[in-house]
Nucleic acid binder design. Sequence first.
DNA 1: AGTGGTGTTATCATTTATGATAACCTCATT
DNA 2: AATGAGGTTATCATAAATGATAACACCACT
Lengths: 73, 73
Amino acid sequence: MEIGQLQQKIGARVRTLRESKGISQQNLAAICNFEKANLSRLEAGRTNPTVSTLYKISQALEIPLSDIVDIDD
Amino acid sequence: MEIGQLQQKIGARVRTLRESKGISQQNLAAICNFEKANLSRLEAGRTNPTVSTLYKISQALEIPLSDIVDIDD
DNA sequence: AGTGGTGTTATCATTTATGATAACCTCATT
DNA sequence: AATGAGGTTATCATAAATGATAACACCACT
C-alpha cells in the first residue's frame, strides 16, 4: 500500500469517527488544540500525521489510538 | 498521557515486536529502507514518528499497523 | 440581503521527522 | 588482540508536519 493511500484511509477514518460522535471539525480541532484548517487537511489525506497528532484526536474522541489506524491492509 | 511517554511506549512496543520476530535493528531497518541509526532513535522513544514510518515497520514485521500503537492508555 | 455555522484551500514561518554518515560501545568469537 | 555483529549517539542537510492566518464556498435561517 502506498503512502498516499494510507493517508487517505487515515483521514477518512478520522472523519468517520468524528462524525459518528457528532462533532464538528472546529470543535474537535479546538479540543485538540489545533486549527480547524489543519484538521481539514488531515481528513483530506493531504498529510502524513505524526503519532502525537493522532493520539490527540483519539483522546478527544475518547477512543483508543489503535482504532484510528485500524484500516484494512 | 504526555507526548514523551507516548513515544517511549511506541518505541518499546516496536522493540518488543521486533525481538519477538528475532530480527536485528539493522535487518528491520534494511527491509524498511532506512538506516539502523534511525530505528534505534525510534525505539529509544526519541522521535515522534509519522504514520508512514510505523506502517513500513508493520509491513516489515508482517503485523497490522494497529498492533504497534496498541498501548494501554 | 445578511448572518452564522461548517468546511476547504492557499500560504507562510517554524518546528521536527527523516535520510545519511560517522564514531563509539559492548559482547562474543577466533 | 583483532574481528564482526548489534546497538547507540551525535550531527547535518533536507523534506515535511504543524501552527497560524486569511479568503472563500456552501448551506440554513431570519
